[in-house]
Design a protein around this nucleic acid. Structure first.
Lengths: 341, 341
DNA sequence: GAAAGTACCGAAAACGTTTTCGGAAAATTG
DNA sequence: CAATTTTCCGAAAACGTTTTCGGTACTTTC
């Protein structure tokens, strides 16, 4: 019941704690004989180092924090999986907290993680986050921070992102290439960089093709829900019956829109084409299946940890850390919700 | 950069470390004056207790472990969210590890968590787990373990489950009530209790309605994937064209089957009715929408932590812990993949 | 056979906190 | 004013580990 300590092993063997500790860690100044003795007794007594004491001594927790806006989400759960798989390989464990898209919560969660003495932090920003002092504060503690997916350009740290603007441009261009003449956009909230970038990509594609950019065709989603997609789709058809294509910020909203349009008897993609964003699992199972942008969540999680790990090593070795911005490639996945080109 | 310690505060104020510590924790034997002084300096110096030292002293990590078979899964991510939300309220953080349905990995992850000195453990068993020594070993360390969703009847600990058997019976009965005469079942792997129970519920419903139980109508899924659902659906139609209803172990497989059947030109629910299990988000968005059993993941996560918390408190207070088995209610969600009754 | 080197071991400090216990000073009591 | 109580503070131990620094004892070298 009580865990074994170095002291107990030392007493049984009649040697010092120091020697036991060194034997277990294969120090060169311990004889093979005592090493063997110690190691054997350690396994029979089921010795495991007290992590609290090790942490205190080494000032490391071998733990990192992860803050994401929402756990129940295909993209983010893929990211989580990527992070955990990579972290485990390097002997790190991951503590996950959720910001619920709230700035205050995000700040509070960071405080918690700081108190827990995590060795590093991975964050995807909340939609509501417009102030970044909590991020710089964290870095001032001498601990690395890596932002991913929803990042702040202004914050000086490493980032793992996709080129949202270019991806959105590709998505919109695909609508244009398949014959759409009047294209609407359901965008995300105003603050987050990626919803801004996706909007900019949409607008750029229109302009590059000499198509009129009409602000009344842009609908701003607030909670990015399935229901919201349906509501805006209905509203759009009422206000702009001439629309024949929609580029939608995220698959969940797109599927809501698609479902509602189908119920309204609108032919997809013949009357209205739809392109989503993210390529959740669901978009291939829906009917018609959804053309979308593939966003590599698992790889993003892996990259984010790898980058954090490098910076943790650098800090430990007291070397200067350089910040890197890694952009992952996305791809257009053509399916049934858009026409053949 | 260097964090403030009690010692530093003590030296500046010219008092002892003891008094500083006690002042911050509002011990009654410290004067109001010194308390105020200490607290003020603590905030201006941005003092935060070194968690490593606190852990070592109190022998608590205020952290729990969570092991699940797969993170990228609607049900499990809901559970995670429920656990984290509840844990945070009580000041606990959660470390998540994944077993990938492998027994060896599950065991290894438990070892890791044990080494990290988590205060308690929440586990949903891997499909491959047939031996439970690692679970009892963990409990012998004097730390509480709560099993949820995929549990082992034989292990003596608290469990949060649903009545899989009854739910499956309800699902099958619904197929019968809506006129199905020959009902197939796509079951999960052989080992896990819940896939056994769902199978038993299916069989019981048939027997109670004097319908023949035909083992050749039961297909065993191994990886429970979307593709597997499609493959078995095609195979089923070839081998048993007379089947007019399928009860499927989980929504993902059900949606695979449903999609394939649709492509084969089979009318759902007119020719073949389908009932799934879990009620992921997706099942309402698909067309036809999927009749399924609602499995309350978020609530299950909350309950699991609450139970674990109670046992952690009991152990801390050196009181005897009693094990409880809590069964959450499920409900049949009728949608378009089954006929009107 | 003395000097130098090597192999092995342990004392002790340190990490930062919590908590027990005793004691000094001040306030209260009769 | 002596005796008692109350108020406030601090010394010290403890949690279990890691690592530096010396110090023996033994071996090698010329």
């Amino acid at each position: 019941m009580k865990p074994t300590t170095l002291k107990e092993i030392a007493e049984i063997l009649g040697i010092s704690i120091t020697t036991v500790s060194k034997a277990l860690k294969d120090y060169p100044d311990v004889s093979k004989k005592t090493k063997a003795l110690v190691k054997e007794l350690a396994v029979t007594m089921n010795y495991r180092p007290n992590s609290f004491a090790v942490n205190l001594r080494t000032k490391e927790s071998k733990t990192i924090g992860l803050i994401i806006p929402e756990i129940v989400h295909h993209f983010f759960s893929s990211v989580i999986k990527g992070i955990i798989s990579q972290a485990e390989k390097k002997g790190y464990l991951v503590i996950i907290l959720q910001s619920d898209e709230s700035y205050d919560l995000e700040k509070k969660q960071m405080e918690l993680l700081l108190n827990k003495n995590v060795d590093g932090l991975l964050v995807s920003l909340a939609n509501a986050t417009a102030d970044f002092k909590h991020l710089t504060d964290f870095m001032e503690q001498g601990k690395p921070l890596v932002l991913f997916d929803k990042v702040a350009k202004i914050v000086n740290c490493s980032k793992i992102i996709i080129d949202d603007r270019k991806a959105a441009e590709t998505a919109t261009q695909h609508l244009i290439d398949t014959g759409c003449k009047r294209i609407a956009h359901f965008r995300g909230p105003l603050l987050p960089q990626n919803s801004i970038d996706r909007f900019l990509g949409y607008r750029k594609a229109l302009r590059d093709n000499n198509m009129e950019y009409d602000p009344s065709l842009v609908y701003i989603c607030s909670d990015m829900s399935y229901e919201e997609g349906g509501d805006y789709a209905a509203q759009l058809m009422k206000e702009h019956p001439d629309v024949d294509g929609i580029f939608i910020n995220t698959d969940l909203v797109a599927i809501g829109a698609l479902t509602t349009l189908k119920k309204m008897g609108i032919q997809i993609p013949e009357q209205v084409s739809i392109v989503g964003f993210s390529n959740w699992f669901m978009s291939q199972a829906i009917s018609p299946s959804l053309t979308t942008i593939d966003q590599p969540g698992f790889a993003m999680g892996q990259m984010a940890f790898k980058r954090l790990y490098k910076e943790m090593l650098a800090i430990k070795a007291k070397k200067p850390v350089t910040f890197k911005i890694k952009t992952l490639v996305t791809s257009l996945v053509k399916r049934e919700s858009t026409r053949e080109s």
